[in-house]
Structure formats: structure tokens, C-alpha cells
């Protein structure tokens, strides 16, 4: 474990806290993409199957938190706060994201075992899972400030994994090319959001697309 990965996981927890806090205090899930939230549950369920055969206090705790919280968010969006969910602006075609990740998982896993193929699927799916959310913000042209903090923290989590991978490569020749390639793509997909977030939200202005 290193400081970069610890900070990344912390940002991941923070993003989940911000999201649930926003939904429970405003009693609304407006501006949140249900499709992205559903993709995240799929990412965690397909990646953390090893909960059943490996145990590490830190990793297992986090995996349970991520699976549990993403299921809880979906419950909130389909249950109490369903009236505030507008599916007409959540229109990204996730079948292409799932299909693309599945093809890459079948073509280039580290090993052709069910666990490895599902893990690879999860890595590729996570790299694009934010697209429905970013697409929704693009379509509405703006986002609540709290929602932009959520997206920022979520983007920062995987962005911090990049120095973690560099650190691990330099100190222990640990090398996971699939995670690195997908992690870089994931972070690049946030780049225009990061730019607007930095130039607008951090200057105290509302998040509005030009």
C-alpha cells in the first residue's frame, strides 16, 4: 500500500459519501445518472468476486462498502427518490459500453478463467462507466455544485491510482498493464470536466458548460 492508492481510495469513499449525502439531504436524485450508478454496481460485483475466496481486512472492507453503497444508491433512485429521477435525460446507450468491455475481456484477459475475464470486464467497464453521467451533465448544460464535487472526487480516485502504479513499478516492478491503460483512459475522460470544475466551481461560480 502507498500514499497515492490510500488517497485514491479515500477520494472514492468521499465521492460515495457526497452522493448519498446529497440524495438524502435534498431528498432528490436529480442530476444523477441512474445508468452510471448501475454500471458501478456491475463493476464492483464483477471485480470483487474474490471476496469469497480471499480475505484482507482493508480490501475486503472496502469491497463490501463499495458494493453495499452502490446497491443502496440504486435503491434510493428506484425507491423513495424515484419521482425525482428523469430517465429522459439519462439516454447514453450503455449497451455499447457493456459490449465493448465484454469483447475486450474475452480478447485480452491475463488468463482465460472466469474470474480473470470478469475482472478484465470490470476494469474496462469502470473506465467508461462515468460517460452516462458526464453525458447527462453535457445535455443539461449545468450541474448542482454538490454533484460536481461528487464527480470530481470520483475522478480523483482513479487519477491517484496512476502515481500509485508508477510508484509500484519503480519500487517493486509490480506491473498491471490492463489496469494502467484503462485507468489512464478513465482519467482522460474526466479531463474536460476537471478543467471546467477547476476554472468554475473552484472559483465559486456555478458549473455551466460554455
Amino acid at each position: 500500500m502507498n500514499i497515492f492508492r490510500l488517497a485514491g481510495d479515500l477520494f472514492h469513499l468521499i465521492s460515495i459519501f457526497i452522493l448519498i449525502h446529497k440524495m438524502t439531504t435534498s431528498k432528490s436524485c436529480s442530476g444523477i445518472s441512474f445508468k452510471s450508478q448501475a454500471l458501478y454496481l456491475l463493476v464492483y460485483v464483477t471485480r470483487y468476486l474474490d471476496l469469497f475466496w480471499t480475505f484482507a481486512l482493508y480490501n475486503s472492507t472496502m469491497k463490501i462498502i463499495f458494493i453495499g453503497s452502490s446497491a443502496y444508491v440504486l435503491h434510493l433512485m428506484t425507491g423513495p427518490f424515484k419521482p425525482t429521477h428523469d430517465p429522459n435525460i439519462d439516454t447514453f446507450k450503455v449497451r455499447y459500453l457493456i459490449g465493448g468491455a465484454a469483447i475486450l475481456a474475452l480478447l485480452f484477459p491475463y488468463k482465460w478463467t472466469p474470474a480473470e475475464v470478469l475482472w478484465t470486464f470490470s476494469i474496462w467497464l469502470e473506465s467508461v462507466a462515468i460517460l452516462p453521467q458526464l453525458f447527462m451533465v453535457q445535455r443539461t448544460g449545468a450541474a448542482e455544485t454538490i454533484t460536481t464535487h461528487y464527480i470530481f472526487a470520483l475522478g480523483a480516485y482513479r487519477a491517484l491510482y496512476i502515481p500509485n502504479w508508477i510508484y509500484r513499478y519503480l519500487t517493486s516492478t509490480f506491473w498491471d498493464p490492463l489496469s494502467i491503460i484503462a485507468g489512464v483512459i478513465q482519467t482522460v475522460l474526466y479531463s474536460d470536466f476537471f478543467y471546467i470544475y477547476y476554472t468554475k466551481v473552484l472559483q465559486g461560480r456555478k458549473f455551466e458548460l460554455p
Partner: peptide
Amino acid sequence: GEKDTPKDEL
């Protein structure tokens, strides 16, 4: 570097 990943990352 080692390609086999021990899956010790989240």
C-alpha cells in the same frame, strides 16, 4: 515486470 497480477488493488 511481473505480468501476473495478484489482484491486491481495488
